[in-house]
Design a protein around this nucleic acid. Structure first.
Lengths: 243, 243
DNA sequence: TAATTTTTATTTGTCTGACATTTAAAAGTC
DNA sequence: GACTTTTAAATGTCAGACAAATAAAAATTA
């Protein structure tokens, strides 16, 4: 854990980086206790508030956790898929909403990624995952369902599809992407979408997965992508000439 | 920007969450200036150090940036692809190294994702991107190249492939994944890999992209995946019986 | 008047020192 | 030996101060 590798400003950022590097390099291992704030103050020759600001930066990235009391302190955190996933969703959501990503671009990326795990899912999906998808389809066909509930069920359906691949790395990457794009999707297709059409395609996906037919899963996903993009184009068209 | 929606501890985390929510909801927009630290202290009824810890948490996520001096302050940051990308690499790298992800799992995910953008890349790759890939292949075939340099060239090659899809969202997602997995890849294949074999496959990929033949790109990627996984199995075998 | 320099006010960055709170371990008690 | 009390160590929070940067206002000068 060396001391100052950066340009001269923002001590707390420098210290955070030094500790971060130590964690990434393996110099500090999971569940290892960092020196106390007082000791870090001495080591880095800064005050305790500065050290604390550095530690809070690391805590925000889930790199450490802190515990109060005797034998408490800051500990290197084992980053869980949940941690990584929720961080990715936050970041990706803002990234998309702040950078004027076109619906088409987001949609293309989303379905490209989803189709990537369709073959694996066709091979490996469990009965449980299939049941989840069926249950979500059932929810989606309930008459009184709000738009919000329909969308969240939509996300759950696709999440089950992705989880079917049985690869936690894929699930982490894809679920983050799908969820981050959902607000963008919803905003455009909220009013225009036909639930029947979507439910029909969901059913085709579920049936294809049940029969473990990769090609049919892929075909249904392609249709869903085309339908979604067509929808968005229609909505855009209407916005241009609202007469 | 409401005040306390959480359980009673870690004020700085609560305040950070409140501001984070305000940014995500759009209540605070890009480049908008937050109240000064003193004003936030008043609003949230906490001391300035506590406010500062909250702001540092947000800065660690690239949600805000700060500027000193008169008319300085904390501003809502427009998250760039670079920000999101580097954060994702850090998180994903640690996620993989801390959770005993098997090489096979990581490898499967990586190539599944990469194959997802191969068709798009075949359609859209620019002459420039193709030239980048050729240049990296050339580097890889230089005799005196260190293992580290070979690996970083490998990453650059695949990055160009991904960028060829012309979809920044895909590039962001994929490049993060590929780069995060590279250390894991290298660790296992460093000594055992045959550069000739890999360069041959890279050439096949580049040729297929030049001819815009999706199927051939995919086939070459599948072969590269199989080769890589076979390699890893061999290495694992040797470790078990080192005689 | 116009350009330049100086001053000033505001804001973040950092430090010192203190107290509150939590928690595990040590000491004491029955 | 089991339980209670005390103690010490650590993080969480606060108050007040000064340093440094920076933009705007004021003063100065050509």
């Amino acid at each position: 854990m060396k001391n100052e590798p950066q340009k001269p400003s923002d001590l707390s950022a420098q210290i955070a980086q030094a500790i971060r590097d130590a964690i990434i390099s393996g110099e500090l291992i999971v569940d290892e206790r960092l020196p106390s704030e007082a000791e870090l103050s001495d080591q880095f020759q800064v005050s305790r508030p500065t050290v604390r600001e550095a530690l809070k930066r690391l805590a925000a990235q889930s790199l450490i956790r802190t515990q109060r009391g005797a034998s408490g302190g800051a500990f290197v955190n084992r980053i869980s898929f949940e941690d990584a996933y929720s961080q990715q969703v936050t970041t990706s959501t803002l990234l998309l909403s702040m950078n004027a990503i076109s619906f088409d671009t987001a949609c293309e990326a989303r379905f490209a990624l989803e189709r990537a795990c369709a073959p694996l899912s066709a091979q490996r999906r469990t009965a449980d995952q299939l049941a989840t998808m069926r249950a979500e389809i059932f929810r989606q066909s309930q008459p009184g369902l709000t738009d919000e509930a329909f969308c969240s069920s939509d996300v759950a359906f696709h999440r089950a599809l992705v989880d079917g691949a049985g690869n936690p790395v894929l699930s982490y990457q894809l679920a983050g992407a799908v969820e981050a794009m959902q607000p963008l999707m919803n905003m455009i297709t909220f009013t225009a979408r036909s639930r029947e059409e979507i439910i029909g395609l969901h059913n085709r996906i579920a049936n294809a997965l049940e029969a473990r037919e990769e090609a049919k899963v892929d075909a249904a996903l392609v249709e869903l992508e085309n339908y979604t993009r067509r929808l968005a184009q229609d909505v855009a068209q209407q916005h241009r000439k609202p007469a």
